[in-house]
Measured scan of single mutants.
Amino acid sequence: EVHFESHGEEQAMRVVKMLKKRNLTVEVKVENNKWIITAK
């Protein structure tokens, strides 16, 4: 499981795309203006 924190939507979306290319399940949450990305 991979956790990634991002402060910007643009950066977060880039990471999500990259993770999805690896056929991982990606969950995105926004907490306290931080984008929290979890990949399994």
Rank of each mutant, 00 (worst) to 15 (best):
31 E>L: 11
15 V>N: 01
25 T>Q: 12
33 N>W: 05
9 E>V: 09
10 E>G: 06
25 T>I: 14
33 N>A: 04
23 N>P: 02
28 V>R: 00
37 I>Y: 00
30 V>C: 05
12 A>H: 02
33 N>F: 09
7 H>W: 14
11 Q>Y: 09
32 N>K: 08
32 N>G: 13
17 K>V: 14
9 E>K: 13
10 E>D: 08
36 I>H: 04
28 V>I: 11
24 L>Y: 15
32 N>H: 07
12 A>V: 07
31 E>W: 05
28 V>P: 00
13 M>S: 04
3 H>L: 13
36 I>A: 01
32 N>M: 05
19 L>A: 01
4 F>K: 03
2 V>Y: 14
24 L>M: 13
33 N>M: 06
1 E>C: 13
20 K>F: 11
1 E>L: 13
23 N>Q: 08
5 E>L: 11
34 K>Y: 06
9 E>G: 06
40 K>V: 10
13 M>E: 03
24 L>T: 03
16 V>D: 01
35 W>I: 06
35 W>Y: 08
3 H>A: 07
12 A>C: 15
37 I>W: 00
6 S>W: 09
21 K>C: 13
23 N>T: 02
24 L>K: 03
1 E>P: 10
26 V>N: 00
29 K>I: 09
32 N>P: 03
25 T>M: 12
19 L>V: 01
30 V>E: 05
35 W>G: 00
30 V>Q: 08
11 Q>K: 06
8 G>I: 15
21 K>N: 09
6 S>L: 15
12 A>P: 01
33 N>E: 07
40 K>E: 05
30 V>W: 13
22 R>C: 14
12 A>F: 04
32 N>F: 06
13 M>R: 09
34 K>N: 05
22 R>L: 15
25 T>E: 11
33 N>I: 03
12 A>M: 10
25 T>F: 13
4 F>G: 04
40 K>L: 09
19 L>S: 02
20 K>S: 07
8 G>T: 15
24 L>F: 15
19 L>Y: 04
11 Q>F: 10
17 K>C: 14
26 V>L: 03
28 V>D: 00
29 K>S: 07
23 N>R: 09
21 K>T: 08
14 R>M: 11
18 M>N: 06
11 Q>P: 06
10 E>L: 11
22 R>Q: 13
19 L>D: 01
10 E>V: 10
34 K>E: 02
34 K>V: 14
25 T>L: 12
22 R>N: 11
1 E>A: 10
6 S>N: 03
28 V>W: 11
9 E>W: 15
24 L>I: 07
29 K>A: 04
27 E>C: 13
4 F>M: 05
14 R>L: 11
23 N>E: 04
28 V>N: 00
5 E>M: 08
9 E>D: 03
8 G>K: 12
8 G>S: 15
23 N>D: 05
4 F>R: 03
24 L>W: 14
37 I>H: 00
31 E>K: 06
27 E>I: 13
14 R>V: 08
35 W>P: 00
2 V>S: 06
11 Q>V: 08
32 N>R: 05
20 K>D: 03
18 M>S: 06
20 K>Q: 13
5 E>F: 10
7 H>R: 09
35 W>D: 00
15 V>P: 00
29 K>G: 02
33 N>Y: 04
25 T>R: 12
5 E>D: 04
33 N>K: 04
38 T>R: 05
25 T>Y: 13
32 N>L: 04
1 E>S: 11
19 L>H: 02
8 G>V: 14
18 M>L: 11
5 E>A: 05
16 V>T: 03
10 E>M: 08
37 I>T: 01
29 K>N: 05
2 V>A: 05
39 A>L: 09
10 E>A: 12
11 Q>G: 05
15 V>W: 11
13 M>W: 07
18 M>T: 04
7 H>N: 11
39 A>F: 12
14 R>I: 10
15 V>T: 04
30 V>K: 11
25 T>K: 10
24 L>R: 03
26 V>W: 03
17 K>N: 11
22 R>I: 11
32 N>T: 04
13 M>N: 07
35 W>N: 01
12 A>Y: 04
23 N>K: 09
18 M>Q: 07
19 L>N: 02
28 V>K: 00
17 K>L: 13
6 S>G: 09
